[in-house]
């Protein structure tokens, strides 16, 4: 039992959980593989032509599983953004960071960090470019950078 200053008594549970998930990507691993080579691709339904981002093997429009990989593009325009200053517990060593939604010329939108920008420099309409990144742990990810 523990009793902090004015807090009522509680039992501080001795049972801890360390949650770390294995996230299946077998149907979309091409996106992550390609990202390692600095290329951005996504899925297109061969039956109805719907292009999706995030990529998905099964078409959300016509439910066909007949998809192919196409170039996603990297040039984007900022739609909206925020500057995350209170970060979640697993990001305490990564923050603060800017996150934006950018729209590509094909109309698809992407959410990602914006690296190398200040809040004052960002506003809707600002030109952005997607770049491939490797995390400190060696995992591929991607970020926007402002096109100056």
């Amino acid at each position: 039992m523990s009793q902090l200053d004015s807090e009522p008594p509680t039992i501080h549970s001795q049972r801890t959980l360390h949650l770390r998930y294995n996230i299946p990507i077998s149907k979309t691993h091409q996106f992550w593989d390609s990202l390692k080579d600095g290329k951005f691709i996504t899925t297109r339904c061969k039956d109805c032509g719907e292009v999706s981002f995030p990529p998905q093997a099964d078409c959300p429009v016509c439910m066909s599983s007949n998809s192919e990989w196409v170039d996603l593009g990297t040039e984007a325009e900022l739609v909206t953004f925020t500057y995350v200053q209170i970060t979640p517990t697993s990001f305490v060593d990564s923050g603060p960071y800017h996150v934006a939604v950018g729209v590509l010329p094909n109309g698809l939108k992407v959410l990602a960090w914006v690296e190398g920008a200040t809040t004052a420099e960002l506003k809707p309409g600002v030109k952005l470019r997607l770049e491939a990144r490797l995390s400190d742990g060696g995992s591929p990810y991607y970020a926007f950078v402002p096109v100056k």
Binding site: T82, P88, Y97, V99
Partner: peptide, 21 residues
Amino acid sequence: LWEFENFGMTFASYYAMYAVA
């Protein structure tokens, strides 16, 4: 996978994007 794993979105961050727009 597309919003949290790499970008650490929070509940406030989502609504902040709506506020900015």
